[in-house]
């Protein structure tokens, strides 16, 4: 399984902070995003934002990043700390 986390606006908009996706159907971030967007039109809209960032195992990654069982993926907006 792949652990998927959402933070800040993305979490609020999806009303979801965490879920699990099967690794057999999500070999990379592009596939995972496409499966998450397929849930409904709201998920499609929220996860299509151009400024959406993704981290794999707590390191910033991109759509091409490969995934395997046990990986932790996080989606979040641009950071605003400091």
């Amino acid at each position: 399984m792949i652990k998927v986390l959402f933070f800040a606006q993305i979490r609020d908009q999806l009303a979801t902070s965490e879920l699990r996706m099967p690794s057999s159907e999500n070999h990379n971030i592009e596939m995972l995003l496409s499966n998450l967007k397929a849930r409904d039109s709201h998920w499609q809209t929220v996860l299509s934002k151009t400024n959406l960032l993704v981290a794999v195992n707590q390191t910033i990654s991109n759509e091409n990043s490969a995934l395997q069982s046990g990986d932790e993926v996080a989606f979040f907006p641009p950071v605003t700390g400091g």
Partner: peptide, 28 residues
């Protein structure tokens, strides 16, 4: 360190106003 912290460290600010409105701060 401050310049990179502001753009890379995963922190997010949510502000509340005197009018009881609250919103996530946009990245600059």
């Amino acid at each position: 360190i401050m310049d990179y912290l502001k753009t890379e460290a995963p922190f997010w600010k949510k502000e509340s106003t005197t009018d009881n409105e609250s919103y996530w701060v946009d990245a600059r």
